[in-house]
Design a protein around this nucleic acid. Structure first.
Lengths: 345, 345
DNA sequence: TTGTACGCGTTATCAC
DNA sequence: GTGATAACGCGTACAA
């Protein structure tokens, strides 16, 4: 019940019989202090359990030892993994993370970034931000005000720091794998708004043309929320609908593992055997892909690496080691499991 | 490149030709201001895109409109769901959330709470904190310094605000279900350190005694990290090991869905059919339980409700509407799916 | 209705 | 080596 008030630097100074300046010096070790006084001060600090008020510090330096992370969904294991990667790097550098959920809403995204700026975070990492906010120049503007790294978002001509998985190569490799196994009627499943979906769709269309695969616009299936848990339900409905109409489709490429799960559930609901009659390939290689039955063939995008790289990068930018913007690409890797079958003509 | 500095209240005052006090009054609407001056000030605010510095404000009030959330893992869909529930409530009240990951480490837990206090958060919600930190009185102490709500943690005699799922009833219902289906040899799978595991284990042991079920200590399987993704691997290894040794076990109760998945994988690895020869029951009702094959029978603990309730509670405490500590229990519900089979004698 | 001046807890600058 | 004192940006008694 004592409800002790938190000690301030002044309390410490009084107890130690020195000035607050000296206390500050002992704490920050930035100026020489006589060993004897140092001891006195340290004792007082310990006794009062003094911890400096970060707000007051922040007010002076405009630094708070905090990094803000923006994610469209914490329900997607992809993001958890990326965040874990970021954390692992910046924790060691004395930063704390400040995680914000946007639900993939572009307005929320801006609002949250405002919140972060208000709280004087030292830097921001935005994971899979909305394409429009990049294109419109919004992020470029922010980037000039505060250190910023964008993970899995990009737009030509927009000057920002990017860390991206190699969605082009990953998608291509997956499609080629399907092709080599004999598939010629491949559908494509994506969410509405994200750079990474756009990249994949472009590759898909190019691939079809290059390989003289016939495809119509309704082979591109689009669900509203790609990142959250809703993706499963929405994908199921969409794919089920497609499977009923177009029975010549033999395979589907889904832009993430949740969507792939939805596709799998659709097939199951229609008693279409996977992979015997319908092949599915996912993206991300979250643990989900190992759990389904059959387990999902998918593209590993090294989520931890993505996070770690972004973590390192933001620290560099904060320390101004590197004022240039950079675009760092992380390699992907096809993980072959059981959801794709050979087609014999 | 203009790198405009953020406007301060003084800039606004100057531009509007008034004192900073007046600007402050316009912003906070706490004192009457002549309509005409108000207009001038509002115009200036808009023009300079002025937003008050929350650090400065926080320094005065010791309030930052921020709520800290502590979670042992963001990889577990259970926590994502709870956090979403919290968010949905407190966003509307003008708070921002500050999510911290402890990896279930008791030291990290304290460290993170320190971080939050340093940043003058207005309140803290701790999800599934380590039992020892509650028992030791640590959380009771924190609770005196700062508004605190504990989700799924509890200890007799420790005065805190709690929001709990009814683990007793949920576990009992699940065990009774297994019993009614004919199971008499039931193993129990838990993680090492958490109140919710302790509750369930107690119920399990009581249940066995009450129903004259023989059980030995090695029917209680314990893995190290219950909350993270590692739980899947660890559970698989542990359960596989058990299944090899004790073939009379016909069912297992797992303390969360990830562990249940691990148990499922173990059975698959040994080509033991689920549920024909081995039944599994999980806990949480995360989406995972719908995805596995067979889908998991599990206990829904209303994760969103848990989060929402905690969100409301923390707001009440902050506003000091209610100085009494309370313990709020959220109901659970058995969800019957396909991972449990009837045993015929 | 408006303005002055001080305080919040720290760090940095300049004296001593 | 050490200590006053002015910042940082805002809110608020108090005075006018």
């Amino acid at each position: 019940m004592a409800e002790k008030k938190r000690a301030t630097i002044a309390d410490v100074a009084k107890l130690a019989g020195v000035s607050i300046t000296t206390v500050s010096r002992v704490m920050n070790k930035n100026y020489p202090v006589k060993e004897e006084t140092r001891q006195k001060v340290e004792k007082a600090i310990e006794e009062l359990e003094f911890k400096p008020n970060l707000l007051a510090r922040g007010l002076i330096h405009n630094k708070t030892q905090t990094i803000g992370i923006l994610t469209p969904s914490i329900e997607n294991l992809f993001f958890s993994q990326v965040v874990k990667g970021i954390d692992s790097i910046i924790k060691n550098k004395g930063y704390t993370t400040f995680l914000c959920n946007t639900e993939g809403d572009p307005q929320q995204e801006k609002l949250m970034i405002g919140n972060m700026k208000d709280r004087s975070v030292d830097g921001i990492i935005a994971i899979n931000p909305r394409t429009n906010n990049i294109k419109s120049g919004y992020y470029e503007l922010i980037s000039k005000q505060i250190p910023l790294v964008i993970i899995n978002g990009y737009n030509k001509g927009i000057r920002c720091n990017y860390v991206l998985n190699d969605g082009e190569v990953g998608t291509l490799e997956a499609l080629r794998y399907l092709y080599d196994e004999g598939h010629r009627d491949i559908a494509f499943l994506r969410g509405l708004h994200s750079y990474s979906y756009d990249v994949k769709e472009n590759i898909y269309k190019e691939f079809c043309k290059d390989n003289k695969i016939m495809f119509s616009e309704d082979d591109v299936l689009v669900i509203k929320d790609g990142n959250g848990l809703e993706a499963v339900e929405q994908s199921k409905a969409t794919v089920e609908n497609m499977l009923k109409k177009k029975d010549k489709i033999t395979a589907i490429f889904a832009c993430n593992d949740w969507m792939a799960v939805g596709a799998l559930n659709a097939a199951k609901a229609l008693k279409i055997s996977v992979p015997d009659r319908f092949s599915i390939i996912g993206f991300d290689n979250t643990i989900i892909s190992q759990i389904t039955e059959p387990s999902l063939t998918t593209v590993d995008q090294n989520m931890t690496g993505l996070g770690q790289t972004a973590g390192k990068r933001i620290c560099e930018i904060i320390k101004e080691k590197d004022k240039e913007n950079r675009k760092i690409i992380i390699e992907t890797k096809l993980i072959i499991r059981d959801s794709v079958n050979v087609i014999s003509e």
